[in-house]
Design a protein around this nucleic acid. Structure first.
Lengths: 191, 191
DNA sequence: CCTACCGATCGGTAGG
DNA sequence: CCTACCGATCGGTAGG
């Protein structure tokens, strides 16, 4: 049992290091000490394997921000919490997150569309955080779409440079980055 | 004459849309109304073609920031200028920039190393801008490495969502994003 | 999960 | 720049 988990874990690592098309089914099988064709007892196509990885990652981002929105109502606390949660999803699933950001374009048009829809939904939740902060007079009246893009840029790019073996925890990095962003968002004398 | 330019232009578009490994030499040839093997009269390997695209993009980023550092000395002006220049390189070469960010990992180890070195040099110039602003008392005493990462996250992620056919010019977007970032960097009452 | 295999396609080359 | 081809490798399958 859990053989599919093993396969996904190896695939995440190889896809994230070499890319989807540069990784063959036989590469994955070899790491599991299997023959190439044997993988097809557990998966039906190579693309299904990519989809499984991408789908799970997308779900984790959504669930993380939903939990924060449910628990927090103060705009600044929401912002900090959502930023921390986003960074935590990446930090705890670095290979999968890398595959999510890099390889979703290799999916079939239908699945690509599903990824885009999820991403739009996720961005809308972040815009709601920024918008709420402005409405409550806590954030400056910035352009919501543009400010959200800036925030998500920092949050997303994290996967490009974070290394788990580094000296600082992901939480500590997340908090410092969100303080920097909040300094640009919060009205003077309000923090 | 200029046949290599045509090939690079087509390759940039296809590599950026489908990825390097999902694009075959024959795909590129077809768009140029050539036979597959005919490309090899102008290039020697497929990887050389990728390298040419990545190398040029890297060079443009470096030249752009060097020009700004030569002309401006005020920290805020340097920041705005470098941000604008970075965004302009992406906006004017969107397919090439996309290939640069996405596909440099597919290069040979030696070339990958060269890309990383260039990137480190580029980041060091940005850190110098942030560090100079702090030293001159214009920026708050933030962590230089972390603040630079945040700035470059926003600058780099731009290629993910910018579309030239959109309503706003790249310059206008760049200025708004750099105002947002500067609001978090500049000491209160200094801008 | 293995053996043995399929057709398709890949990057690249020889010879003109 | 084309024709014709090379060996290698790909994702996937049949039969056990």
């Amino acid at each position: 049992m859990g053989r599919l988990e093993d396969i996904c874990q190896v695939a995440e690592r190889l896809f994230s290091e070499r890319g989807y098309h540069a990784t063959s089914i036989r590469d994955i099988a070899r790491k599991l000490h299997l023959q190439g064709g044997s993988l097809y007892a557990h998966i039906s196509t190579k693309e299904d394997l990519l989809w499984e990885i991408v789908r799970r990652a997308a779900e984790q981002f959504l669930q993380a921000i939903e939990a924060v929105l449910r628990q927090e109502s103060d705009p600044v606390a929401r912002f900090r919490g959502a930023f921390r949660a986003h960074v935590a999803v990446i930090a705890r699933n670095l290979p999968a997150a890398t595959v999510y950001f890099h390889e979703w374009r290799q999916l079939s048009p239908q699945r690509r569309e599903a990824v885009l829809q999820q991403r739009d939904l996720y961005e809308a939740m972040w815009r709601e955080i920024v918008h709420g902060g402005i409405e409550q007079g806590v954030f400056r009246p910035v352009d919501v779409a543009m400010a959200t893009r800036a925030v998500l840029s920092v949050a997303n790019w994290f996967y490009q440079w974070y290394r788990p073996e580094g000296p600082r925890s992901a939480e500590s990095i997340a908090d410092e980055l969100s303080e920097l962003l909040l300094a640009g968002l919060v009205k003077e004398g309000q923090s």
